[in-house]
Simulated assay, not measured.
Amino acid sequence: MHALFTEHASKHYHYLRDTMPHLVPRLRPTVTSGSDFGKEDKIDEEAERGKEFLEKVVTGVENARPGGRVHTQLLEAAAVDLDRLAEMDHRMEGAARFTALYIRCLLLLKSILKEFSILSTNSVSTSPLPNTTTNVSVLLQNTQKLQRLFSGLSENEIILANDVWLKALAVELIRVTRSVTGRSALPLARHFLSEADILPQDTTKLPSFSRALVLQIPTLADVKPGSLTRMLLPLLLTPALQGEERLPRPSVSTRFCRAIIEEPRGDADAALKFTGGLLLGIPLTAKILNLRDPSILRIKLRHPDQQVQLLLPRQSDLRLQNTEQNDYRLRTTVLLSHQVWMEACNVEISLALLVPSSAVCTHSPLDDPCVIDLCKPTKVSIAPKPIKR
């Protein structure tokens, strides 16, 4: 029945289902004929093909010789192929996106380490290259996406995600220690040590970098940023042996967190007018799929002057829809205020996760790695008007 609803009727159904769940039943698909069993077999067969394709891509990259130009090209091609797999097969979306994001973290890490090696051979200049800061910021954000946006991961995938997160913290520590901006690297060093202390003492299942941290950090005479940098840089620059670097192989049960904004639509022609300096309420309705921690969900506002605001939604506005997959529905009103503008301008509204990590979140608000976007922003045109006298 739900498939026969128009878009308008579907919105009314979801609204009544949210507000009066004791009166409005959940519409579930029912098996009416034996042909549906054939469809299920076809879906299972497509999922198996997706798993085989993922395994083939991962195995091809692992068997290549690491460190060369061909290996980098294989990683880039694998990330593109996995993105296509995620778009074509919704059951493999979580596994494909996790593996593609992990591969992009490896590519960013290679680029950053290449810049570090250039700076190591050049003893004249100690300032980082211009794009190093941007690459490190993107790497920090991508590694936190691996840890925050995916659920249903196995132990091996969690270990690999934590390993590349420690590598990202290490390159950020090296960058800050070598910079001439005067910023202290001590808080970041303490944060890195606290993350490394979580590693298990049994190093049999750990990757080479995490294993080296467990063995070498206790041998340091002092754990100041300079001594940590001298220990970490050789570990990062040492190339991996063929067959040593392993890629993740997530299962079909891996789920990806994302948001879908239903209202505002962003296609309205007329601007929302209000008196400058007063409040404007913008209704916001959205679905958040596979949300692990609702406490870090934020409403993100980007103003025309590129100022970013992160708003905490009320708990009563966020309702759990599916307990098995942690799907939520957000229905709230975004309050916005601004002074008078000469003409109407767009305000971007989106949903994001705010990662609680003060030691890392020292970048500019426009590229803050601790703010993880869950969807593309929706543009709303507003026009603050002067007070009529």
Rank of each mutant, 00 (worst) to 15 (best):
H2R: 00
H2A: 03
H2I: 00
L4E: 10
F5N: 12
F5G: 10
E7C: 03
A9S: 08
S10A: 10
K11H: 06
H12A: 05
H12S: 08
Y13H: 05
H14G: 02
Y15S: 13
D18F: 07
H22P: 06
R28E: 08
T32E: 15
T32C: 06
S33L: 00
S33T: 11
K42N: 09
E48H: 11
R49M: 09
K51C: 13
K51E: 13
F53Y: 15
E55R: 15
K56C: 06
V57A: 00
G60R: 08
G60I: 04
E62P: 00
R65P: 15
R65D: 14
G67V: 09
G68N: 12
A77W: 00
A79I: 11
E87H: 13
D89W: 05
H90P: 14
H90E: 14
A96L: 12
L109Q: 09
L113G: 03
S117R: 15
S125E: 12
P128C: 11
L129V: 04
T133L: 07
N135P: 07
V136A: 05
V138D: 13
L146H: 07
F150W: 10
S151C: 11
S154N: 10
S154K: 09
N156M: 12
A161D: 02
A161R: 14
L169H: 08
A170G: 07
L173R: 07
V176Q: 06
G182D: 12
A185L: 04
P187V: 09
A189Y: 09
A189H: 14
F192V: 08
P200H: 11
T204Y: 08
T204E: 15
P207I: 11
R211A: 14
A212W: 04
L228F: 01
R230Q: 09
L232F: 02
L235P: 08
L237K: 06
Q242D: 05
G243T: 01
E245C: 07
R249V: 01
P250Y: 04
V252W: 14
V252K: 08
R255H: 13
F256E: 00
F256R: 01
F256C: 01
A259G: 09
I261V: 13
I261R: 03
R265K: 11
G266I: 10
G276F: 08
G281P: 04
I282L: 06
L284P: 10
L284S: 03
T285P: 02
K287N: 14
I288F: 00
P294H: 03
S295M: 01
R302W: 01
P304A: 03
V308D: 09
R319C: 01
N322C: 08
I349V: 14
L353G: 13
C361F: 07
S364R: 09
D367E: 15
C370E: 02
V371F: 05
V371E: 02
I372P: 05
K379C: 02
A383N: 15
K385Q: 15
